[in-house]
Design a protein around this nucleic acid. Structure first.
Length: 108
DNA sequence: GCCATGACAGTTT
DNA sequence: AAAACTGCCATGG
């Protein structure tokens, strides 16, 4: 990865790191916070490259609270396990009470 | 430099 | 209301 490329990704990583314990956020929320509400897909793309980083990708889900990125984790239910380990209830790859657990980066 | 892909989101049928 | 389609933007080939 080139240093310039990290520009966008790094921003995503920084925001993702700000996600409090037991909280979740959506790609669109992060993208919007970064000033690129249309680049929600890029956020997920960045997460894919977050391997080896301190980025809690398991706390980032789509706007519906669905664990769309669970496929990118090692196991099949690893992402769900991590969330449940933080006190987040997940059923059928979907976060329960998502609206209540939702964390907006603008809340900083 | 153009074509294809993707962990989303919003709009339309 | 549910499902399908398109738009968007950055990355990789």
């Amino acid at each position: 990865m080139k240093p310039e490329t990290l520009n966008f990704f790094d921003k995503v990583y920084q925001v993702a790191r700000q996600i409090p314990y037991g909280r979740v956020t959506s790609y669109g929320a992060i993208a919007k916070y970064l000033g690129a509400p249309r680049s929600a897909r890029m956020v997920g793309y960045a997460m894919n490259n977050s391997s080896g980083k301190d980025v809690p990708a398991h706390r980032v889900v789509n706007r519906k609270g669905l664990l769309t990125g669970k496929h990118h984790f090692d196991g099949t239910n690893l992402m769900q396990q991590l969330l449940e380990s933080e006190g987040v209830t997940v059923v059928n790859n979907q976060i329960q009470d998502f609206e209540n657990l939702f964390w907006d980066p603008a809340s900083l």
